[in-house]
Computed example of a mutant assay.
Amino acid sequence: MDSLMNILTELDSSVAWEKEEALIDDRILDSFGVISLVAELEDSFSIEIEAAEMIPENFNSVEAMRKMIVKLQEK
């Protein structure tokens, strides 16, 4: 999932993405960031992230995002 890290680094290179566990809860990733990220993830991974998937639990950490991506790719 190097492409996920590339996307996150392009979004904000000052964040230590792999270390963060509360990206949404700590407001490191704001609503605009989530919208931008969702668009990039959908394009890069050929998935559709529906509104029901846009919850903090799916975006609070890199691992949570990876799990969501894998789950959506299996659909």
Rank of each mutant, 00 (worst) to 15 (best):
A64Q: 07
E53A: 10
E53C: 05
M1P: 08
E48Y: 12
S61Y: 12
N60P: 06
L41Q: 05
N60V: 06
E40L: 15
E10C: 10
S31Y: 13
T9L: 08
D25C: 00
I69Y: 09
L37N: 09
A39E: 12
E63C: 12
I69N: 02
L23W: 01
I55H: 08
I55D: 03
I49H: 07
V70S: 13
S14V: 10
S46T: 13
A22V: 00
Q73G: 08
D43G: 15
W17M: 01
N60W: 09
L4H: 05
A64F: 01
I47T: 04
S61A: 00
R66N: 04
L23P: 09
I55P: 08
F59I: 09
S3L: 15
S61G: 07
E21K: 01
M1C: 11
A39S: 12
A52T: 13
E40R: 14
E10L: 14
I55S: 07
A64R: 04
E53Y: 05
V15Y: 02
N58I: 00
L11V: 06
N60A: 02
D26A: 00
E74T: 12
M1G: 13
A16T: 08
E20M: 00
V62R: 07
S61K: 02
I7P: 01
D26N: 10
D12A: 08
I24M: 02
D12G: 05
V34S: 04
M5G: 10
E40I: 14
A16P: 03
R27Q: 03
L41D: 03
S46G: 12
I24S: 02
D25A: 01
N6K: 11
N60F: 10
F45E: 12
M65H: 00
V38A: 10
M68A: 02
E57M: 05
L37I: 11
E57H: 09
E10D: 05
K75D: 12
F32W: 08
G33V: 04
F59S: 04
R27D: 07
V70F: 12
G33R: 01
F45M: 08
R27W: 11
S13A: 14
M1A: 14
L23G: 01
K19G: 03
D25V: 06
M54Q: 14
V70Q: 00
E57P: 00
L4N: 11
E42D: 11
D2Q: 13
R27T: 03
V15H: 05
M54Y: 14
A64E: 04
A52L: 11
A51C: 10
I47R: 04
L11T: 03
E10I: 14
M65F: 09
M65D: 03
E18R: 04
L37M: 12
S3H: 15
K75C: 13
L37Y: 07
S13Y: 13
R66H: 09
V34R: 05
L37A: 09
N58H: 07
E57D: 03
R27L: 00
T9I: 11
N58S: 05
M5I: 06
S14C: 12
V15Q: 02
E50Q: 15
L37K: 04
E53W: 08
L8S: 00
F45S: 11
E10T: 13
